[in-house]
Design a binder for these strands. Structure first.
Length: 747
DNA sequence: TCTCTCACTTC
DNA sequence: TGAAGTGAGAG
């Protein structure tokens, strides 16, 4: 039997484990393909055109397919076949005319993003929803011109920390608040042909960010609370609900499918651009970010220095008040040496008050206000080069462009958030050599495209958060450093994986969301229904163009209930600890291996129980029920950013590292067949090294040793001077006592 | 911190 | 022309 390998762009990297699906779905799918219907899956409907297809890694295709056939004949649970297989109708197993695609994604306006990222991008979130700026735009290439694709975007928590802007820097301020319901936004033009997508810049500017948890721009899907992996609510919407003062990472997904119904069976290729990471705020914290927004966002023109907007008036007012102050000050104190320091402080204040005046900074000022006093250029320079006295060390990290499956895509670069320069000095060299065995991850199911170095660079920052968290109380300024790394995940496994936790929902195009069908009415939908398109089919009627192509193939989905699902899962050895051996487990690992926000902290992340249990055990006597319900809450409280290869036996790692190994034994079987694949991958230019658990170790050590005190270093004189100036300025100018934007000086 | 209103902008 | 997107600033 020959298999069509069209789907996997990289052998072994394409896993049709959709984020919307429980990890069991693939098994169901396979069963369906082979005519073996699980009792709890009464009406599997295969999308037309073989969208749901069994796609196997090349090297393993034949053997596994044989197993599949054998299993179909003998009734052997498909779950025992390992994680590689996924759905594709047999009829499409034959070579087709379809063109293989090799999607590449380029982030538009990368330079702009970089500018923001260097300073610590802030995105304002409002009750009614606020657009992102810079807008998230990408350009795609390598798509099959004739195939249809659905492009999506979602925003996941970058870590499980809450931040505060203190002393001109973003600092970790504690553990993250409970995560908001996640949503995924489907590009309004979806589905469209590859040709259409490639002919234009794909923009997601209509996506809005909100902190309004009761946002009605979507609808909720409620899943049984007792479901093993999909408890809770999943919402669709054009607005993404975020927590203020939390860090987020947008993601872009390409799904080759011609209608929404097929999403569950389709391969997700996920692209992540580190430079698009941001912190959600209800009010801007960093003047530099404000200024960048004003300077670049057309809608904020009114605040620019040029023109007659309020900005100009405000600036003039400020300058005027400063002049008055200056004059009076001179008159009162005469020209003296002591004025120098105050002048410096004044400058600092001026700079703060009028960000536009970027040249105000003086040497003195710099001493006092390393951040505010410097010009942008200087700031950039500093931000990218070496540590400073008052500024925590910043190390420019350049990501080694590793075998990236997608070289043209998101450049794998590491940036540092200037706004959080404090990070600990990162010793890239050390990081790079930190985890030798990570380079040997045999099986690269993950298509993590960034090099190890990149990953390492990113992870430290995030790991910092994790570490700090794990080590409760230990102030870790380094945490705040956004050690960015560009990760591009193509593997469906990785993608699905990525999508898994963080994307509990779908966000439909405005038009869709507004469809009468949704109207904010909660829907009760069984995962199976969701997975198999039953619900979608129903929705299709009201979904307009997006679902116009839906085949009405879907049939009854009745009889599905959580109990059945649960028992079925148990029967397949999918529940409880054994779940750890399932594909999803791999996905989790893959996700973790990419240093991504592994989870929707505290959300409904279907996580392998064994893994969770391990985490819980290590963390203390975490209630298993709690763990079960919110695996990531506990897991992440331990170590949100573990990365390891599910297929390699990680080196013994102290403390948290043990968590990683816990689930590995069970993975051995599944990993087995992948080894060959891994070899193939290794030889393939497209293959990507998967981080192993050892990385964690190295990272941890890096963290602990590289932690750098941040805010404490900020010179006290600066604050005093700034504060004094503010007082004076208020008196002189008569301006209201709003502490200005110079929060930097007097937090 | 957050919410709301405002003047200003784009489209 | 008006809807909608901006940051400022007051509360």
């Amino acid at each position: 039997m020959s298999l069509s390998m069209r789907d996997p762009v990289i052998p072994g990297t394409s896993m049709a484990y959709h984020p919307f699906l429980p990890h069991r779905a693939p098994d169901f799918a396979m069963s369906a393909v082979l005519g073996h219907q699980p009792p709890f899956f009464p009406a599997l409907t295969l999308p037309p055109n073989g969208a749901a297809a069994l796609s196997l890694p090349g090297a393993l295709a034949k053997p596994i397919m044989d197993q599949l056939v054998g299993a179909a004949e003998t009734g052997i649970p498909f779950s025992s076949l390992g994680p590689q297989a996924h759905l594709r109708p047999l009829k499409t197993m034959e070579p087709e005319e379809e063109v293989e695609d090799d999607p590449k994604v380029h982030l538009e306006a990368k330079e702009l993003w970089d500018q923001f990222h260097k300073r610590g991008t802030e995105m304002v979130i409002t009750k009614s929803g606020r657009r992102m700026f810079p807008p998230f735009k990408v350009r795609c290439s390598g798509l099959d011109k004739k195939a249809k694709y659905i492009l999506l975007m979602d925003i996941i928590a970058a870590d499980d920390c809450r931040y505060k802007f203190h002393n001109s820097r973003w600092m970790v301020a504690g553990k993250a608040d409970p995560e908001m319901p996640k949503r995924m936004y489907i590009h309004p033009d979806s589905p469209a042909t590859g040709e259409q997508w490639m002919s234009k810049v794909v923009t997601f500017h209509k996506l809005k960010l909100t902190n309004n948890i009761s946002d009605k721009h979507g609808f909720t899907l409620a899943f049984p609370s007792d479901h093993a992996t999909w408890q809770g609510n999943y919402s669709f919407g054009t607005q993404t609900i975020l927590n203020s003062m939390h860090k987020y990472q947008p993601r872009f997904h390409i799904v080759r499918a011609n209608d929404i119904l097929k999403l569950p069976y389709s391969t997700f290729r996920t692209y992540l651009f580190p430079e698009t990471e941001f912190i959600a705020v209800t009010a801007y914290q960093n003047d530099k970010i404000t200024q960048l927004k004003i300077d670049n966002n057309p809608f904020a023109k009114g605040f620019r220095d040029t023109g007659n907007g309020r900005r100009e008036k405000r600036k003039q007012l400020t300058l005027q008040s400063m002049r008055v102050f200056d004059d009076r000050h001179k008159k009162e104190n005469g020209t003296s040496d002591e004025s120098s320091s105050e002048q410096a402080a004044f400058n600092c204040f001026a700079q703060s008050s009028s960000p536009a005046v970027s040249t105000v900074g003086t040497s003195n000022l710099k001493d006092l206000c390393p951040s505010e006093g410097e010009s942008d250029a200087e700031a950039d320079s500093k931000e990218e080069h070496g540590p400073e006295a008052c500024d925590a060390a910043k190390i420019s990290t350049t990501t080694s462009e590793e075998p990236c499956r997608d070289k043209g895509s998101p450049a794998v670069k590491a940036h540092l958030f200037a706004a959080e320069p404090g990070g600990r000095p990162r010793d890239s060299g050390r990081l790079d050599k930190a985890s030798p065995d990570s380079r040997h991850s045999p099986a690269t199911i993950s298509s993590s495209t960034r090099g190890l170095g990149a990953e390492e660079r990113r992870s430290p920052g995030r790991e910092g958060a994790a570490t700090s968290k794990a080590e409760e109380g230990r102030a870790l300024p380094g945490k705040e450093a956004f050690a960015p790394l560009t990760v591009q995940t193509d593997a469906a496994a990785a993608a699905a994986h990525l999508g898994q936790g963080p994307l509990p929902g779908l966000g439909f195009a405005p038009g869709l969301a507004g469809q009468q069908f949704f109207n904010g009415h909660p829907l009760f939908l069984h995962p199976g229904q969701f997975a198999m398109g039953g619900a979608f089919s129903s929705m299709a009627a009201g979904m307009g163009p997006l679902l116009a192509t839906v085949s009405g193939a879907s049939t009854g989905v009745s009889g599905l209930d959580s109990t059945a699902m649960a028992s079925a899962a148990a029967a397949q050895g999918l529940s409880g600890a054994s779940a750890a051996t399932l594909p999803f487990h791999l996905q989790q690992h893959v996700l973790a291996s990419q240093g991504l926000a592994m989870s929707p902290f505290g959300s409904l992340f279907p996580y392998p129980y064994t893994y969770m249990a391990a985490a819980a055990a290590a963390s203390s006597a975490a209630a298993s029920s709690s763990v079960h319900r919110h695996p990531f809450l506990n897991l992440n409280s331990m170590r949100p950013r573990l990365r390891y290869s599910p297929y390699s036996i990680p080196m013994p790692v102290p403390d948290s590292g043990s968590l990683l190994t816990t689930a590995l034994p069970s993975m051995a079987a599944a990993a087995g067949p992948l080894d060959g694949k891994a070899a193939a991958l290794a030889a393939s230019p497209a293959s990507v090294a998967v981080d192993s658990g050892s990385e964690l170790n190295s990272r941890s050590s890096t963290l602990s040793s590289s932690s750098v005190s941040l805010s404490p270093k900020l010179c006290p004189e600066k604050e005093a001077a700034t504060s004094e100036l503010q007082s004076i300025q208020r008196l002189v100018s008569g301006l209201e006592a709003k502490p200005d934007r110079s929060r930097s000086g007097s937090p």
